[in-house]
Every structure is written in structure tokens, then in C-alpha cells.
Design a protein around this nucleic acid. Structure first.
Length: 623
RNA sequence: GGGUUCGUAGCUCAGCAUGGAUAGAGCGAGUGCUUGCGGAGCAUUAGGCCGGGGGUUCGAAUCCCUUCGGACCCGCCA
């Protein structure tokens, strides 16, 4: 810990001073100051104004004389600002050494939050009947980054992907295969998931419009899918597995990996629902309606809102009845009915497990906390689920991490050959209104490849491919993480994939520039030296930014907010770019200064790499 | 009808959790910078009654109420 520690120390020092003055405790803040107001700032004089019946300025002046920094050599002094703030200044002659040496450590920025406690992150959870589209990418990347951040905060994270292999959406493509005679092999070299989504699903649901009888068939087919022994169920198994495998390829290309796949069909067959249903009944969490609209149904009472039907009057459970046992299973509230077997070895050579009902291997993928990443359209349902879970376990054990959806810009909709009313449109699988994830990645990779090739004539084909991949994946990830969770992303094939300004490639470019500096000198940075030579504004700004990594990690963990790390990475790159422009490292006047600056460059690179690593983004040496 | 949420520069967005000092970026527009480590860059100018109104407060982009505009959710579908 670097900056965070500094803030905490000033915080407690201030609290001690207030205590000595016999002040009533107040909740004050100690945080990094805006440029021009010292390095660290405290607002406590404002908050004491009423209590002490003095002006903030007066209190500020008084307090500023009471600090003693003998045990904090990194702080130079504190000044009372005419506005009333207490502004602390860092002594960079001491601070530089501390920051640079700590930033080289392997776990720089790591925090202790989780005590290695097990936490489950579930994300992706897409029906295996189509290819992943840009909307799914937001879910996948958010889930992936959240799990990386939690790992950084010392949680033992298990990542799950729920495979909804027995819903109506799956039934729809099976209708296409069994009733409309679509080939079970995709034509030419088309990816199987694209074929199922772009052709079979769209064409089949289209046919429903004119053929109502066919539409009726889907429920029949769904019933057969859920019956393990039926022929249709075997076909469905084969098809959904094939689609899933293609979806996984897409996901792996984005650098996302899981620990275990959970199949909905197995949850249904596991009788987990029956167990939890009895538990809900005996705990009086649900009630049976004798009269009214919901007569004959089991419902979940919801205060202020309509009761949610859990079991219909015909005895069949509703959709949410699949979510509840699964949530309970994730939290380890029920005996685990599953065995586990290896599904595959992922692209990063990590083993991926899957649930099975007939095996002998027992593993544990539950956690004392669960985070479920699902978009905000499901917020009502998720509230019911987390409300129920809070009754079995402590409040907050089950967290729904929601986010707004991704829509398509009018231009992009038109480029798909479709028409649109407003400025953007919700994606729709049925209408063929979506952009596949693979398409986005390919388009972007090609663009980066061309750009990189035009800048680097001497790079080999494989180096160019590698760079194109790293930058393309980074760009998609960055664009998905950067906006606030409750902001709709309007995806535009042109605008969303820019490479200039506040983009991933800008950040990566700063890394590549740093690499070139280190590459062009024979001097090996010697870290066993004093860094007080780094005294220009540009150097101090960079040091401070590097030091503040832990503050942002802290923030992002506390608020489950991935974008905080994206913003920090960008700011770090901006600070370096300014340094790069104004401080000519290789032209340093003395060897000592050259060495100190080279060390700073290494420190920057390490920190940026770690920060980008939390976002699942790599940084190339050249691009 | 009930509920959730968004509204900040021409456009896309930070800042809001925990109210304080000069509301920040990027794109787009203007200007300048490459005989110096890569111009995917740097520097600089213009551009804002933070949707409107009210309230709380010494102080509001930030908290509360209200209103307008947009998005989403509200089935014995999944």
C-alpha cells in the first residue's frame, strides 16, 4: 500500500488531533487534491465550523499548526488554504524512492479485503442457440473484470457460466432442425453458432408468423427436450453442446475463462427445485393462494409490488423457479447434487469443469458470497431472488450486478439492411437485429493490423497478428468497461471502434513508447539509487499517479466498479504521455538522472501493465 | 396505471456513493509543435444557468420534492 496508507495515516492523525481538542467526532474526508491545492486535502475545518462556532478558515489555521509528521517522512507539511481546506504536501525526495521500489513488487496494488474467502461470480449465461453478440460481450467482460478485481483483493474467486440449455429459445432451433429440415451441419465454413442464430433461429421464428401450428410445436418440443429419454432431447443435447463450444471459442478469444459450466437441464433433473420448494414452504417464505386471481398458485409475497407466482395452478413451476435453486446452490445452502467432470482445456490451458449427474468426482464451486452479472432488465426478478437468499443467509451474500443494455446505432442497424425508427434500437435475435461478437473482433483486428503494418514495415507477419489481436481485444474490453453500469451503450460499428483519444490503443501506445525508450539505451536501470533527482512537475505527477493505484483498486472493489480501473489506466497513460513529451529521458544531462528516469519509466510500465491486467488487457512492446 | 433509471460542452461521456476551493476528458472545430525516446502523440483556443422549478444547507452538478423529456421493467412466457 502506498497512497492509501498515506491517506489513512493522515486520517488517523487528524482524528487524534480532534480527539485532543475534545471535538465531537465528525465524518471527514482525506483525499488526493486537485492540481494546485497541494497533494492531499482534508475538509474537516468545514465540518467543525458549526460545532466550534468558528469559521472554517480559522479552524483550518489552528489545526494546521497541530500536525507533527516526524513518523511520516513522505509528508512535507500542511498548509491552511484561505478557502478553509487543509492541504498537505508530499515530500517527493522521500516519496519517490518508496513508490518506485514498491511498484516493482509482484502484487503491487493488491489489497486485503477477502481473506481468501470463496466468492462466486456468474456471468455470460447465454442460451446455447446462437452466437454471442455485442450485448453479451458487455456482460462477459464486466463479469471477467469484476472477478479479476476481486482476486486482487484476495478473494478466492470461482467463475461460473450458466448454460440455459432447455428453454424455449433452444426449442425454437430444434423445431427448425426437426420440423423444417435444416441441416445439422453448418454450410461451408460457417461457425455453427452463427448458422444456428443467423439462419435457423431467424428463419424458424419467422415461419411462426405464417404457421401458427408450427409455433404450437415449440412447447411440445420443449417438453421432449426436458425428457431425458426422448430422441429430441438427444438431438438438442448434441446441438446445444456444439453451439456452446463455438460460443466458448469466441469468449476465449476475448481472454475470458471459467471454472465451471452449469447446465440448466441438470438443475431441472437434479430435483434441487423440489428440495428448495419444501424449504421455502416450511420456512413460510411463500404462500399458497386459495382465492383471487392467483388461486391455486404458490406465490412469493412481495411488499409494495404484485406477488410473484412461483408455481402455477397446474403445478408447473415458473421461470424463476430455476433461478432460486441455482442461487441457493451457488451459496452452498443445499446439498450439492452434482458431480463434476472435465469439459475441456481452455485456451489459457486452464481446466474447465462441467456439472454432471452421474459421476464420482466431487468438487466445490459454491461460495459464501455470490455475484450474478445480469442486465438490468432482470432487476425485479433478481431482487426477489436476492431477497429470498437474504432470508437464508446474511444480507448482501447474494449480489446482483446489473448494468444497462447495449443497443445499436441507427447507422449500424441500416448497415445490417434493416430499418429503424429512432436513433438506436434494442437488439433482437428474432429479427436478426444484432452484431455478432466474432464479427466485431474480426473487423477490429483487421483494422488494427492494417494500421500497425503501415507504421512498422519491419515487423513479421506473426508479430503483426499478435499486435492486432492484443489491441483489438483491448479496445473491445475497454469500450465495454469504460461507461458507467447504468448507462446504455449505443454500439456503432464506426464510432465504437476508434483508435484515437480516450481509447485502449492510446493507453497501449504509451506503453509501447516506454518500451522504446528502454530499448534504445544500453544503460540497465539500477534501482538501488536515490530518486530525489526526479523533481520536475512531470516526474512528480507521474510518481503520484503510480502511487495512487491502490486508491483506485480500493475504490473499484468497494463499489464493484470496473470502470474505475479503466479510468485510472487512461489517466496514468495521459500522465506518462505528457512526461514523455516534455522530459527527454535519453537526453538526460547526467548518468544519475538518466538512471533515475529509466527507473521511473520501468515503474510506470509495471504499474500500467498491472492495471491493464485487471481489465484483462495486454500491452504490446510495439504496435 | 405502477415502478426503476438516465438527462452535464455541437456529439460521446467523467465527476454524484461520502455536498465544499477553478465542473473535467475524448470526438468534432481553430492554432501551434517532428534537424531530439514513435504524431495512435503533445501544447493551446473557443464551446456549460450541470433538462426546468422548488426545498434542505453557511455552501448543491452532487441530498430531498416536483415537473418535462428519453430508456427499461411490470404474464399462471422463458
Amino acid at each position: 500500500m502506498v497512497f492509501l496508507k498515506l491517506l489513512e495515516n493522515i486520517q488517523s492523525k487528524t482524528a487524534e488531533i480532534l480527539d485532543a481538542k475534545n471535538c465531537e467526532p465528525v465524518k471527514f474526508s482525506v483525499e488526493s487534491a486537485k492540481p494546485g491545492f497541494g497533494d492531499i486535502t482534508c475538509n474537516v475545518p468545514f465540518l467543525l465550523s458549526k460545532q466550534l462556532k468558528k469559521s472554517p478558515q480559522e479552524i483550518s489555521r489552528e489545526l494546521s499548526t497541530m500536525y507533527n509528521f516526524d513518523d511520516m517522512p513522505e509528508i512535507k507539511n500542511v498548509e491552511s488554504h484561505p478557502s478553509g481546506y487543509l492541504n498537505f504536501s508530499i515530500d517527493y525526495t522521500k516519496f519517490n524512492n518508496l513508490v518506485i521500489s514498491l511498484s516493482l513488487e509482484e502484487n503491487y496494488g493488491a489489497l486485503e479485503f477477502g481473506n481468501n474467502e470463496k466468492i462466486v461470480v456468474e456471468h455470460t449465461s447465454v442460451n446455447p442457440n446462437k452466437a454471442l453478440h455485442v450485448g453479451h460481450i458487455r456482460n462477459i467482460i464486466l463479469g471477467d473484470v469484476v472477478s479479476k478485481i476481486l482476486k486482487k483483493a484476495n478473494y478466492d474467486v470461482k467463475i461460473l457460466n450458466y448454460v440455459d440449455d432447455s428453454g424455449l429459445q433452444v426449442a425454437d432451433i430444434i423445431v427448425g432442425f426437426t420440423e423444417l429440415g435444416f441441416s445439422q451441419e453448418s454450410p461451408d465454413n460457417e461457425k455453427f453458432d452463427h448458422y444456428c442464430g443467423d439462419t435457423v433461429y431467424v428463419k424458424t421464428t419467422e415461419k411462426y408468423e405464417s404457421d401458427k401450428e408450427l409455433e404450437g410445436k415449440r412447447h411440445e418440443i420443449l417438453k421432449q427436450i426436458e425428457d431425458n429419454s426422448s430422441e429430441v432431447s438427444k438431438i438438442a443435447q448434441t446441438i446445444t453442446r456444439k453451439v456452446l463450444n463455438e460460443q466458448l471459442k469466441t469468449v476465449w478469444n476475448l481472454g475470458v475463462f471459467y471454472d465451471c459450466l452449469n447446465f440448466e437441464s441438470q438443475i431441472i433433473h437434479s430435483k434441487l427445485w423440489e428440495t428448495i420448494f419444501e424449504k421455502l414452504k416450511s420456512d413460510n417464505q411463500i404462500k399458497y393462494e386459495d382465492e383471487g386471481d392467483n388461486a391455486g398458485c404458490w406465490v412469493i409475497p412481495a411488499d409494495g409490488e404484485d406477488d410473484k407466482i412461483l408455481v402455477r395452478s397446474n403445478g408447473v413451476a415458473t421461470y424463476i423457479a430455476k433461478d432460486i435453486p441455482y442461487a441457493a446452490w451457488k451459496l452452498g445452502l443445499v446439498d450439492d447434487p452434482f458431480y463434476y467432470k472435465i469439459h475441456s482445456t481452455q485456451k489459457n490451458s486452464q481446466i474447465l469443469y462441467e456439472t454432471t449427474l452421474d459421476g464420482d468426482k466431487k468438487l466445490n464451486f459454491s461460495g459464501s458470497k455470490v455475484i450474478t452479472v445480469i442486465d438490468n432488465r432482470q432487476i425485479r426478478l433478481q431482487k426477489i431472488v436476492s431477497g429470498l437468499m437474504a432470508k437464508f443467509k446474511e444480507e448482501g451474500a447474494y449480489t446482483h450486478l446489473g448494468y444497462e443494455s447495449v443497443t445499436l446505432s441507427a447507422d449500424t442497424v441500416k448497415s445490417l439492411g434493416l430499418s429503424v425508427d429512432g436513433e438506436s434500437a434494442q437488439m433482437s435475435g428474432r429479427k436478426g437485429l444484432y452484431v455478432n461478437a466474432d464479427t466485431v473482433l474480426e473487423t477490429l483486428t483487421k483494422r488494427v493490423y492494417d494500421e500497425s503494418k503501415s507504421r512498422n514495415e519491419n515487423l513479421s507477419e506473426s508479430e503483426l497478428q499478435n499486435i492486432a489481436n492484443i489491441v483489438a481485444v483491448g479496445t473491445i474490453r475497454y469500450e465495454m468497461i469504460k461507461p458507467d453500469l447504468d448507462k446504455i451503450i449505443t454500439f456503432d460499428l464506426k464510432n465504437s471502434l476508434r483508435l484515437e483519444g480516450d481509447t485502449c490503443s492510446y493507453i497501449q501506445y504509451s506503453f509501447a513508447r516506454a518500451s522504446r525508450i528502454l530499448e534504445k539505451t544500453d544503460v540497465k536501470p539500477n534501482f538501488d539509487s536515490a530518486f530525489e533527482l526526479l523533481s520536475s512537475e512531470y516526474e512528480k505527477n507521474l510518481i503520484k499517479k503510480i502511487a495512487m493505484f491502490d486508491v483506485h483498486v480500493n475504490d473499484s472493489v468497494n463499489n464493484l466498479s470496473p470502470k474505475v480501473i479503466a479510468k485510472y489506466s487512461y489517466e496514468l497513460a495521459v500522465t506518462f504521455s505528457s512526461f514523455y513529451e516534455h522530459v527527454k529521458v535519453l537526453a538526460s544531462e547526467t548518468t544519475e538522472l538518466l538512471n533515475a528516469r529509466l527507473c521511473l519509466v520501468v515503474s510506470f510500465q509495471k504499474t500500467l501493465k498491472t492495471s491493464l491486467g485487471l481489465l484483462g488487457i495486454d500491452a504490446p512492446e510495439r504496435m
